[in-house]
């Protein structure tokens, strides 16, 4: 089991890292030939950073758009954030002070996350408009996260596992020296699903996490009259060098 999970996590980590790397490089390299911020937009780079910060931390546009969804979204993402931050303890020795500080909130984070996910899933069934735009993969994503959340909560509350050993296993992985992994079913399911999530991440809509930072309507400065914005391919076009011709 230990070997199997060691291989699984090395693979999942490699896929996640390479996949995200490729996607982020693609987003960064693809030019944005025109200035298309959704206005009113900030006039300065710091203003843009502040706008992006509000989008990522507060989900500002979503708040304007749909209050119930905003609540569900914050519930889930904030819970997820707390849980992930709390999980850092499995990967570091000594544990950072802030990470140690939030340890007591893991349960609440987990509950918020799972509750939020359940509400988000319910929306997809109950609301006709949302059901219409939902594909099986959208449910899969929610199910995957719910599975991880529920098994995690199971371990926190009912079926405790040997956390010291789990930590030793992951610290071992980091040193390429795997230590024995406890065989509790809840833990194994939890970890297997996490590995699946890591593998699916770069091929799915979960790309919204890195992608939001590259959205031109949100990350561009409103200064087109002051500064000429010209992409590389448009510059080539101006010089008449683009081989694709006149259209």
């Amino acid at each position: 089991m230990t070997t199997l999970f060691a291989i699984l996590f090395y693979t999942a980590f490699a896929v996640l890292l390479a996949g995200l790397g490729i996607k982020i490089a693609q987003y960064a390299r693809t030019p944005a030939p025109l200035k298309i911020p959704t206005t009113p937009a900030p006039l300065t780079a710091s203003g843009v950073a502040f706008r992006m910060g509000r989008e990522v931390v507060l989900f500002e546009s979503l708040f304007k758009s749909n209050k119930p969804l905003w609540i569900f979204a914050v519930l889930f993402h904030l819970g997820l954030f707390v849980v992930l931050a709390r999980h850092l303890r499995y990967f570091q020795e000594p544990v950072w002070f802030p990470v140690a500080l939030i340890q007591p909130f893991g349960l609440y984070g987990g509950l918020a996350m799972v509750g939020g996910l359940a509400l988000l899933a319910l929306r997809r069934v109950v609301l006709a408009r949302i059901a219409y735009i939902t594909a099986p993969s959208d449910f899969l994503m929610l199910a995957l996260l719910l599975g991880i959340g529920v098994t995690g909560l199971g371990m926190t509350t009912l079926a405790h596992t040997d956390i010291i050993a789990v930590k030793a296993f992951f610290l071992g992985l980091l040193r390429f020296d795997p230590q024995p992994l406890p065989g509790d079913p809840a833990l194994l399911v939890h970890l297997a699903l996490v590995a699946v999530l890591m593998i699916v991440f770069p091929f799915s809509k979960l790309l919204h996490a890195p992608g939001v930072f590259f959205s031109p309507t949100r990350n561009q400065t409103d200064n087109p009259r002051e500064r000429r914005h010209l992409s590389a391919w448009a510059a080539k076009l101006e010089m008449g060098k683009l081989e694709s011709g006149r259209n």
Binding site: A32, I133, P216
Partner: peptide
């Protein structure tokens, strides 16, 4: 050629907002 198109194709979470 258009970052907008590439990014928008990938990141919609079908939230329905």
């Amino acid at each position: 050629k258009y970052r907008s198109l590439q990014v928008f194709m990938d990141i919609c979470v079908k939230c329905g907002a």
